[in-house]
Design a protein around this nucleic acid. Structure first.
Lengths: 343, 343
DNA sequence: GTGAAAGCGCTAACAC
DNA sequence: GTGTTAGCGCTTTCAC
């Protein structure tokens, strides 16, 4: 770590950065040779390469990513944009993306946007300094999104866009298992508590999968909402569900489900005695609550990894864009679902 | 968003970036004037400035942060290094830092390091591309840390280092309230479940505060551990506490406390009936669990904001380094603490 | 296989 | 107040 940045004692005792020409001078070669020793080592004979590398090392030389980006146009940096960092839902996504990026020698820039405008600003600000974007929950409309895709490599998460690579969570298997689970517990109907914004593709996908699965197992399905995908939104949804007299609800996500749980507890409604409650995501906290939450798990960390993979692939490999990756789901049965109440 | 990056139709129909000289040519001024219009607008007459800006706008010009960094050496980027992104403890920190950085026009790079070596690698990799570092949970030893501080602006969190700005969580008020709370519930002794690594300053600080406060209110305090600050570590700590026969425990952090809670539930030990359990942090999930966790809250989001503030201050303002910010703590009483068991 | 030299897009003296 | 010019540190033709 001594040569963290590459500093040499300059003319008047002031530290000066070690550059490629210092190494060139020290090794008695041209700057281009030093450059090659680092970026195209195969072009050099073993002897010169070793020699240059050794001199560079003892001088404490570190290539400057900035200067590199200046000439090549590649920054080795990707940006991950999310809608709300504090939502545990994103933790896995962030971690997966960071891990994969770091493994490939890429740097991850994180931006938290609470609105479509903020998202635009982030994109505009970062556009020149990153090689590509992972849009974790884009609030941009289709047209805006396409204009970004036109200029930059983009991977979206749970947001189909023509021309961009995307990772999509496949709700189908999880929702099917959910329907079977509830049916086998004697529920005759299930209420889906919709959430997100009008642009939230996954909300529709979940509802579609759940309804189809309910059809297949012979129970009815209907929808309430759309509610805010937050604890508070869950509270509102809980009241609506109680009013509707449903015996089983599936919330848009775990955050909402947790809100439902809390609200029902406050109102003295027993879970799962009176109502069975399910969420989606299996986010952090879903098995910490009481009762522990039955949920449809989506492996967001692998979604994050996949998103980074797709992006890096688009960046480095041939221009085979618009690839997609599908993340499967599955039911995790815990304590918040149980037998349908009699009658 | 149309001119996201700044693209013009180049010579053979291929898109080419709009540069400062395109604008200069278009506006009939020198490149330096265009540069000034963006970075030192005060140096120009209103007319030229307006004119240049207008031409730049209709050409779709965007300054390149890379080229800027190349000449000025400032990247307008800071890095936040944490030990485990998925630990909800960091969420607040990350969010606070991101928010504050973004507000100041800075970009936040996030790196997740699971070891001292990984941390070194991250620092070395990022050193030239960021203006400074926030070290959320540095695993570097003092010497390594100082060598980083020597070359780069650094703010540490809960890790005192000479020469670096730092944000420190002040456990004292929270721990005092905790001791008073437990004493008033009739507990005659409290066990602190230590956690973290040998470098974890906050662990010692918490223990010191708790012990002093217990002295003052006339109850005894002792320490068990050190345990891993995880759910599993909490389970281990729970067993140790039960074996020691204590009536009240304060865990190193909430994650551990949650592990204690779960383990005690599994063992059929009633909380708070048999044992009162407290955590530290008030992280996400602390009021979702059963029983809801009594904890010493530290506002990590404001710690994150403060860290970013200190760093940006060191970067932009005069070189008054080694400033520090102290984040207060306070007790949040919920359900996991109660009257001491009789006898 | 290696060197010389021309940039990449911008800022910062230094002139005028 | 604005223009000229010399770099920042690197990569990349193009020669040799």
């Amino acid at each position: 770590l001594h040569w963290l940045i590459g500093v040499a004692v300059g003319t008047r005792g002031r530290p000066r950065r070690v550059t490629i020409s210092d190494v060139a001078a020290g090794a008695g070669v041209a700057t281009s040779t030093v450059s090659r020793a680092f970026s195209r080592p195969d072009l050099l004979t073993v002897e010169t390469r070793e020699h240059v590398l050794q001199v560079a090392d003892q001088l404490g030389y570190r290539p400057s990513p900035i200067a590199r980006a200046m000439t090549t146009g590649v920054t080795n940096t990707i940006a991950l944009l999310v809608g709300d960092i504090t939502n545990p839902y994103f933790f896995g996504l962030i971690r997966g993306a960071e891990r994969q990026a770091a493994a490939a020698g890429y740097t991850l820039v994180l931006a938290d946007n609470d609105s479509a405008e903020a998202e635009e600003r982030s994109i505009a600000r970062l556009a020149r300094s990153v090689d590509g974007f992972i849009l974790g929950t884009s609030r941009l409309n289709d047209e805006e999104l396409r204009s970004v895709v036109r200029e930059r490599a983009v991977v979206t998460v749970n947001r189909p866009v023509t021309g961009a690579a995307q990772v999509l969570v496949d709700s189908e298997p999880g929702m099917r298992q959910a329907a079977e689970h509830l049916a086998s517990l004697g529920h005759r109907s299930v209420t889906y508590l919709a959430g997100g914004s009008a642009l939230t593709w996954i909300d529709k996908a979940q509802w579609r999968s759940l309804r189809a699965a309910c059809d297949d197992v012979g129970i009815s399905a209907d929808q309430l909402g759309r509610f805010s995908p937050t604890l508070d939104g869950g509270a509102a949804a809980a009241d609506a569900a109680v009013f509707a007299g449903t015996s089983a609800v599936v919330a848009f996500n775990d955050m909402m489900a947790l809100g439902v749980l809390r609200r029902l507890a406050d109102r003295g409604v027993s879970v799962p005695g009176d109502i069975s409650v399910m969420g989606v995501d299996d986010m952090f906290g879903a098995d910490l609550c009481a009762p522990r939450l039955t949920t449809v798990r989506a492996d967001l960390e692998s979604a994050g990894r996949g998103a980074a993979d797709l992006l890096l692939g688009a960046l480095t490999g041939p221009a085979r864009r618009s690839r997609r990756m599908v993340v499967p789901t599955g039911l995790v049965v815990r304590e918040s679902t149980g037998d349908a109440p009699p009658g």
